[in-house]
């Protein structure tokens, strides 16, 4: 197989030599595997939630009573837009190798992502104070907080990673190693958005409908 046939998906490197592409392929494939393993973790949490949100209410508040659909909708938009912004950061890296433009788009991504996490924390605050629904209240709420909390933790670590990458762009410029890390961060970020589709559908919308 020639190099060109084996190009990885996701975002590719732009104008660099074929060897880097070959190295990139190994690294990116490895990261895909990590993402899949992470996805299994989420799947297990989803399955647990699916059972406990019905069977584990134990006299506590039910899903429909505590969920704020408007907030979930805004969160969905924030995360979707941040994913989109990251896409443009990667295009700036790939076609123009323009560090400034990459940084600007990363900043947009980061602000949207931070807003997402902030809103989620606010959701938790409202649930705990106004609805008397902390994770200790019932099996359903334990599962809810673990599932959404794991996602929020992923997004937060993505934000930390983003800050580190911004520093690395400033220090090293867009060299191959930095590009490869940005690619992986992009995959990570887009994948978190995919997981969120599951959360807003199976947690929030299902919870309100049923």
């Amino acid at each position: 197989m020639s190099v060109s046939e084996r190009l990885h998906p996701g975002v590719n490197l732009g104008a660099t030599d074929p060897e880097s592409h070959e190295a990139a392929e190994e690294v990116v494939f490895g990261f895909w595997i990590f993402l899949m393993s992470d996805l299994v973790l989420f799947a297990v949490l989803f399955a647990t939630y699916a059972a406990m949100s019905v069977q584990g209410i134990a006299g506590g508040p039910a899903p429909a009573e505590v969920f704020d659909l408007t907030a979930a909708f805004v969160e969905t938009l924030l995360l979707l837009l941040s994913s989109f912004a990251f896409g443009f950061a990667m295009l700036a890296m790939k076609y123009r190798e323009n560090a400034r433009s990459v940084l600007a788009w990363l900043l947009a991504t980061g602000v949207l992502g931070a807003a997402f996490v902030g809103m989620e924390l606010h959701d938790y605050y409202v649930m705990i104070t106004a609805h008397g629904a902390p994770p200790q209240a019932s099996g359903f709420l334990s599962a809810y907080y673990l599932l959404t909390g794991t996602h929020a933790l992923h997004v937060s670590s993505g934000l930390v990673w983003m800050v580190i990458m911004a520093v690395q762009i400033a220090v090293f410029g867009l060299n191959t190693a930095v590009k490869l890390r940005l690619m992986r961060l992009a995959l990570f970020w887009h994948m978190l958005d995919v997981v969120w589709i599951g959360i807003f559908t199976f947690v929030y919308l299902f919870g309100v409908v049923s």
């Binding site: 647990t48 059972a51 069977q55 200790q136």
Partner: peptide, 12 residues
């Protein structure tokens, strides 16, 4: 104090 596997309180 979560209730994933406890007796009662919706644990399973």
């Amino acid at each position: 104090g979560f209730h994933f596997f406890t007796n009662g309180d919706g644990g399973n």
